[in-house]
Amino acid sequence: MTPAAERRTEYRYEKRNAYYGMDMAAKPKPEREQRVSRPAAGVNPYVKINLLIILVLGGVMAVIFGIMPANYEASVQQEINQTIKDIAAVNVEIESLEIQVKNVSGISYIESRAIEELGMIYPAPEQFVFITNNSVRVNDFAQYIKENAYELW
């Protein structure tokens, strides 16, 4: 027997001793060891598929619970930013229009337009109607002025 064969023989004995014990009586096989005979998890294609599915599922879950909310929040924030800009722009537009309205609301402007463009004139001082405490309340004040302004005499 070659030395190598001897070493292998010794090794077998050691393994047998470990398995059967020194009395060579068979030891009951532990439950856990009985199930050890399955192939390595990463290697079995079915396991790989399972792992892949788990990984995909995990990824999907990560996307659903991690990335998507973050993305959603960013998207909402972007919308808020845009809305803030839109509101600011609208406010500026409103202020700009208000100024334009006020520019043409002054008495001087209205008077010049009325006289120069519409040909309106001021009534003579004697043609004015004055409102006093004794004045009669009328429903159509404009009509009342129209009817009475020229009937002073």
């Binding site: 600011a88 100024i99 006020k102 609301s105 002054g106 402007y109």
Partner: peptide, 13 residues
């Protein structure tokens, strides 16, 4: 940059 400016709607009034 945003700013606030003064306006006098009736000009020299």
């Amino acid at each position: 940059e945003d700013d606030v400016s003064r306006h006098y709607p009736y000009g020299a009034f």
